[in-house]
């Protein structure tokens, strides 16, 4: 490489950095700034009426797992907190599984349409994004409530005599979450299946593979990056979901998001709220790491 070429390359690399500097600094400041504040607050002492006192304390972090029993003063494992965490994680996993079960056939269907039609199908998938999340959630509420669309229609058709009580149950939250996050699963799955070479299917059948074997050994390994991307996109926001559980669940059982809000609101324990937020972030990071490891292992060609 001639010195002129080298300097040319350095220049273009410098230009690249310069050009991306505004976006990078925005991302850095907007993402790490508030996060640092949350991190610092999690190590402070709660103020009398909200806010914090600038005194170092680990109580926020200890409070995630342990609580002092208000009646006998002993430190116990905070089973209320663990119940809330587990409910959120369980619901997020279930939502991810359901959106995958519904999203995979959908994505497959779209990817196997003639190219001219695909754009239209994808366009249909994105329609829910035109409306605000809160409005969509209230729309579901309107459909499934006791005197709502679903029950009125079923009763007038004579299929049921008593309304199906769905609203304010965990099932309602589950349905709502799956509905809200389904497009986030379909789109990356479609992108992966779209790149899939259909000739590989024929090759599989030629080698006497059954349909199930083709699915397991040919399709799934190749579209795995899409599955992983979709699962992350669904799992991560599900974990912090706040609106859907509140509107459809009737507020009787808290999720992590609602529990964190309690600490910053009526609970007046900002350090605990901050520590809970950081713990949630750690769970998400752990989930991401597991996914990334699983995906890099899978993509190594073996044999």
């Amino acid at each position: 490489m001639s010195p002129a070429e080298q300097s040319q390359r350095r220049k273009s690399s410098r230009n690249g950095w310069l050009l991306s500097a505004p976006a990078l600094s925005l991302l850095f400041l907007a993402a790490s700034g508030p996060l640092l504040i949350v991190l610092v607050y999690s190590f402070l002492t709660p103020g009398q009426y909200g806010n914090v006192i600038w005194e170092f304390s680990l109580d926020g972090w200890v409070g995630i797992l342990f609580t002092r029993d208000i009646f006998d003063g002993t430190m116990n494992l905070a089973d209320a907190h663990l119940t809330i965490f587990w409910r959120s994680v369980k619901l997020s996993l279930m939502t991810t599984a359901l959106t995958f079960a519904l999203g995979f056939p959908t994505a497959w269907f779209i990817a196997t349409r003639p190219p001219a039609q695909r754009a239209m199908w994808l366009f249909l998938i994105t329609i829910p994004f035109w409306t605000n999340l809160l409005i969509r959630t209230f729309a579901i509420n309107e459909v499934i409530r006791n005197e709502g669309l679903m029950n009125t229609v079923l009763i007038s058709l004579g299929l049921i005599s008593e309304p199906i009580r769905l609203i304010n149950t965990d099932t309602a939250v589950f349905i709502g979450m799956a509905y809200v996050y389904l497009p986030l699963m379909v789109l990356p799955l479609f992108a992966a299946i779209d790149r899939f070479d259909m000739k590989l299917l024929e090759a599989g059948y030629d080698l006497y593979a059954s349909r199930l074997q083709v699915l397991r050994h040919v399709i799934l390994p190749i579209v795995k990056p899409g599955i992983i991307a979709g699962s992350i996109l669904v799992f991560v926001p599900s974990l912090g979901a706040y609106v859907t559980p509140r509107v459809l669940g009737g507020g009787k059982n808290m999720m992590i998001g609602n529990f964190i809000e309690l600490q910053f609101g009526q609970g007046r324990n900002w350090p605990l709220g901050a520590a809970l937020s950081m713990a949630l972030l750690l769970i998400v990071m752990a989930a991401l790491l597991i996914y990334v490891r699983a995906s890099t292992k899978g993509s190594n060609p073996h044999g």
């Binding site: 209320a80 907190h81 507020g251 009787k252 808290m254 009526q266 007046r268």
Partner: peptide
């Protein structure tokens, strides 16, 4: 109150 409330809504 917060402890009771957390217990109630867990």
């Amino acid at each position: 109150m917060t402890a009771i409330w957390t217990e109630l809504l867990k």
